[in-house]
Nucleic acid binder design. Sequence first.
RNA 1: GGAGAGGUGACCGAGCUGGUUGAAGGUGCGCGCCUGCUAAGCGUGUGUGGGGUUUAUACUUCACCGAGGGUUCGAAUCCCUCCCUCUCCGCCA
Length: 421
Amino acid sequence: MLDIKFIRDNVDLVEDAIKNKNETVNLDLVLTLDKEKRKIQFEYDTLRSEQNKISQQIPKLKKKNKDVSKVIDNLKNYSSKVKILASKLAEVEEQLEKELLKIPNLPNSDVPIGQNESDNKFLRDWGDKRKFGFQPKKHLKICKEQKLLDIKRAAKISGSGFVGFQHKGAKLARALINFMLDYHIEKHNYKEISLPVIVNRKTMTGTGQLPKLADDMYHIEKDDLFLVPTSEVSVTNLYSGEILGLEDLPQKFISNSLCFRREAGSHGKETKGLQRVHQFSKVEMVKFVTPDTSYEVLDDLLNDAEDILQALELPYRIISLATGDLSFASAKTYDLEVWAPATERYLEVSSVSNFEDFQARRASIRYRDVNGNVQFVHTLNGSGLAIPRTFIAILETYQNEDGTITIPKVLRPYFNNEKIL
RNA sequence: GGAGAGGUGACCGAGCUGGUUGAAGGUGCGCGCCUGCUAAGCGUGUGUGGGGUUUAUACUUCACCGAGGGUUCGAAUCCCUCCCUCUCCGCCA
């Protein structure tokens, strides 16, 4: 959420940002509602103030055994007027709040401006793509031959877009999760946390998934609960409504969780196999920091994600997302894309973002600065990494001519130090 | 699912026979004083959000005692609904 005061004073800036992010928001309505709200509030406050003052006379008069019926009669007039104003105020406030929640975050000034992903900016790459002395197989073929997945039966029990890992495939997926968690905890000093994947409406609104992305999420109607599309949601909301001490910052959390995405409207597009699935595991990094450090921390976060790919010796590239491709809540995002040599494509395995105070304002996550003033924290997160696509890259990169898979060095401790899957 | 207890400020904890109580008291924390160290003591300050006046400091006002409704001239205090925590019982992975 943006500060209404900021919007008031920077209408042009906000309008540009909305346009660059391909969003449509009725800013005029926001400004009108804001004006209206303040007007009603002033009237309400004034009236209430008078009412309170008169009301406070009653106990005094009663003590002196004086008649208070006239005073009360007078107050009855106030009461009805106050009630009308109060309901008007509540109505306008609700409308304003609703509109404010639809305004996206402002992109940071160094984010490339552009309509869509074709305007994303290549930043750098790492690693040499493997040259094969034989025809490398695509991951789905490998999975089939090695019986690593059971897609058909997963579809039978849940529907298309769900996958089942089995045998060595299940073990490889689990090894990846454990490796990533252990690595971030030991090498990068993250604190592990495991939170619910089913969350309430307020939580979903806090990180910015609601109201915009309602159709992309699984919703349990009976309880009005949602399945998280990423553990960013639960972890970032950990401190919602709280005021942290300066000594509590920064905070670095690492969390593995299942992620659930309806992927509405993306049928037929990369829906085969593992590239785009309704349910998957992801190891997520979430940070809470003071505003002055957040862009430095964004770079750290990017490095932490890169370290995983480097440890796995998987070539990748980093791109900086253009304004039109940025998520609703993000001010700046880097995508990490791993090279899948047989599919011959880069696959997004991590998205690293700085939300500045956008989520903190929505979820009311604050801290007390050196002067004792209450400020919003900055929140950041990054995948470290998404499991299925990392899984793809490993199979394709580490395949051998005889159909076996060499286990990446850093994963071998999770396989009794064996070299072949 | 049933029965009971409860949810108050950073924390503990009064208030809950409705009326100067945004909230006693304590702890913690800030500042000042005193004590040649330490411990202790004294004074004083210390919630969040919104509005208005203001260059700023500041002043002023409204709201907030789990959330939302209701009763009332007036609600932390009474009533209703919901959420959460704890205890006991039942049921079930």
